[in-house]
Design a protein around this nucleic acid. Sequence first.
DNA 1: TGTGCAATTAGCAAATTAGCTAATGATTGA
DNA 2: TCAATCATTAGCTAATTTGCTAATTGCACA
Lengths: 116, 116
Amino acid sequence: MSLDKVFEALASGPRREILAYLSSAELSTSELAERFKMSAPTISRHLSVLENAGLVTSARHGQFVLYKLAPDNLVNTLAGFAFELCPVGGPLKRESRKLAAQKKTKTKTKTVRKPG
Amino acid sequence: MSLDKVFEALASGPRREILAYLSSAELSTSELAERFKMSAPTISRHLSVLENAGLVTSARHGQFVLYKLAPDNLVNTLAGFAFELCPVGGPLKRESRKLAAQKKTKTKTKTVRKPG
DNA sequence: TGTGCAATTAGCAAATTAGCTAATGATTGA
DNA sequence: TCAATCATTAGCTAATTTGCTAATTGCACA
């Protein structure tokens, strides 16, 4: 459920593709392996990364382990992240504009310059 | 602007931290390097990854290069991705429920079994 | 025009990741 | 219980990433 794990999980193309498959149906490891041209162990590893990040859940049904999307975690995490960076209403927070204004002050005596 | 580049860029903790800094002010490479305990070249590389993904933009001001967030690209990409996986109203699309129902059919003659 | 600082590029070592095959659980059904 | 099948773990190699320092490029200004 950590941001780190979620973004690490989403950084892989095959893993995002797995999520896409799981968005329309619950599937087992081997069913996913068929759809990809990858070995079952490889898929299994990807699934464990996704599960560890809280993006999918699994349930054993007899011989099979069915994986399905955990859509709430996905959406909440991404939305939370985006909101932290850009709270509604635009790119910059109020405070930031103040900071941006401050940057315009120049020092003359120091040799070290600052941008602005 | 590709999904691949965006998620690769977001996969790094330091890069997400850079985005957080840029969400409240435009900053130069060296200003960012101060805030992190990292060398300027390292920050510069992170910034180029972020810029290449379309998440930040840069503008040279004299000696300095100021970086700032490209919030639209960030939000649109994440929202688009999330929406593709979970269109409004719940985890599964209509079609998916049909598929899930289909899975319940069993074959008797084949030795290969299917989950469900 | 030459010196100094900001930024980037080049080149390197350590760590991580992604794929594979082989081996080891887990579960069903004869 | 044995054989078959699904899933996962172990162990390996190739490729990528991340940090660094050193070298190079771009600008400002004395």
